[in-house]
Design a binder for these strands. Structure first.
Length: 462
RNA sequence: GCCCCGUUCGUCUAGCGGCCUAGGACGAUACCUUCUCAAGGUAUAGAUCGCCGGUUCGAAUCCGGCACGGGGUACCA
């Protein structure tokens, strides 16, 4: 049987969550390694939380990251449609089939009654679970009430005793007592399925072989196992990867961290660096290297090697990683990336190719290019501090008579500094400030060579 | 509250009973290089492997309990 993995994002956020990107990466690598398929299915059954345009942005971000899918809502596939709202008719049918077999029942309880029930359970220190009131209704009566149009849901009928267990590919045996599993709603009163029903049916119909998702789903998994058993379907292999956490150890959240892939794109991070960083959070390359591509990872990856603990998302390390990737990139590629990233940058290929070797190792994100290199294109209008007129005059005089080579300029400035009994480094600093507006930046003399004698002297004159 | 998952330097990890006086990376600090800042190089600090018991000649590694952290507990996913 071929390996088919999937991610099933809900279009309820602005964009692809970085945690979903991580899960997507693992799913992709598992499928790719086995020569199987990686699929995207949109789970849009919560109509109240739908966010306009979310689905398109999720797909776009996955594409930008470089995690290609073989089937999905945008490209179709053998098991289309890949959007749950387009597959509505089958869910109800399956649920009613479960009712016929006694594995589910109609429930007419109101939100008010359920709330009251939970309050009471909480007061009595009992686990908040549906009390099974509607399970006692005669099925024929229930059916006729439904036919008369009475508002209702369908709940799964969880056995009162026994244990439901599964083997997690990265955590091993996990088991739950059935008595503690709630009679989960599987069809809502708006006739949409809940996640639990939808995911089981679709994974089965789409022949998903490995369910790899976040650990926040572990407690829901027994419900899904039960449903597979009710339907008499084969249970796919299951693995739960760790959730990513904020520095304060809580689950990664947008309150405390940028969480959307587009946030990282906008800050000038490269997809390869993001993927490499994400991979390194729970997996290490066998020979210990820190920098590796998705392809290299795919060749040697085993899902059982994934760490079980939940890592903290460390932006500092991502920045370092991003710098590594920028330095590895060719000047041509980097130039194209920068053009695409920042519209300030003039499309002057010749000049850019002169500048890039000077700034490449000084930038950790694409966003840092402009503040580093702006002075090559524009005369600075803001200065980091007040200049020293006497020292910059020394530089100006020295340079005005100099040939425009690195050696000549350096010699002139040093000699002039000596004559004036000033430290060469102080004069260089004034020169830097006058020309670039800043006290830190790319190598000075190389920068002046790109800038040209005329422009340099103009800036020194003021 | 209840259920489940987890626990090696600040952070990410290596480690699968003796090779561990616990290795690497990020970050930090110092030095080298130097026109600044980076990059690069070198070095230093940083973990009694959550705690307590047990198994064993020997435990970070196996077992049990506890503590702590996280996740879940919806007609959200």
């Amino acid at each position: 049987m071929s390996v088919r993995t999937r991610i099933a994002p809900s279009p309820t956020g602005q964009d692809l969550h970085i945690g979903n990107a991580y899960t997507a990466l693992i799913n992709y690598v598992v499928a790719k390694k086995a020569g199987g398929q990686f699929i995207i299915r949109i789970e849009d059954t919560d109509r109240t939380r739908l966010v306009e345009g979310s689905e398109q942005r999720i797909l776009a971000s996955l594409g930008w990251l470089g995690i290609p899918h073989q089937e999905g809502p945008d490209i179709g596939g053998q098991y289309a449609p890949y959007r749950q709202s387009d597959r509505l008719e089958s869910y109800r049918k399956y649920a009613e089939n479960l009712i016929a077999k006694g594995h589910a029942y109609y429930c007419f309880c109101t939100a008010e009654r359920l709330e009251e029930m939970r309050k009471k359970q909480e007061a009595d220190h009992k686990p908040p679970m549906y009390d099974g009131l509607c399970k006692t209704i005669d099925p024929k009566d229930a059916k006729s009430r439904v036919e008369k149009g009475e508002r209702h849901v369908i709940r799964m009928n969880v056995p009162d005793d026994g244990v439901t267990a599964f083997t997690d590919l990265i955590r091993g045996e996990v088991s739950f007592e059935n008595a503690l599993i709630d009679d989960q709603v599987i069809i809502k009163s708006d006739n949409f399925p809940t996640y639990h029903l939808g995911v089981v049916i679709d994974d089965h119909e789409m022949k998903i072989s490995h369910i790899i998702r976040g650990e926040e789903w572990i407690s829901s998994t027994p419900k899904h196992i039960l449903l597979y058993n009710f339907f008499g379907w084969e249970i796919p292999k299951i693995a739960h990867v760790s959730v990513l956490r904020n520095p304060d150890r809580s689950k990664l959240s947008k309150r405390k961290n940028p969480v959307w892939v587009s946030d990282y794109k906008a800050k000038g991070y490269l997809p390869e660096a993001i993927l490499n960083y994400l991979a390194s959070l729970a997996w290490s390359y066998p020979d210990g290297r820190d920098v590796f591509s998705v392809g290299e990872m795919t060749d040697v990856f085993e899902i059982s090697q994934l760490k079980t603990s939940a890592p903290i998302f460390d932006v500092e390390k991502l920045r370092w990683m991003n710098g590594e990737y920028i330095r590895m990139m060719s000047d041509e590629d980097l130039m194209q990336q920068l053009y695409a990233f920042d519209s300030h940058i003039p499309h002057d290929d010749v000049k850019m190719k002169q500048i890039l070797p000077l700034v490449k190792e000084r930038m950790k994100t694409l966003a840092e290019f402009w503040s580093l290199a702006r002075f090559f294109f524009e005369k600075p209008d803001v200065f980091e501090r007040l200049g020293n007129i006497r020292l910059s005059a020394i530089a100006r005089e020295a340079l005005s008579e100099s040939d425009w080579t690195h050696e000549a300029m350096e010699k002139r400035v040093r000699e002039a500094s000596d004559v004036a009994h000033e430290k060469a480094r102080d004069v260089f600093m004034e020169l830097r400030l006058a020309v670039t507006g800043k006290t830190v930046g790319p190598p000075l003399l190389e920068s002046l060579m790109i800038l040209g004698k005329e422009e340099t002297l103009k800036r020194l004159t003021g």
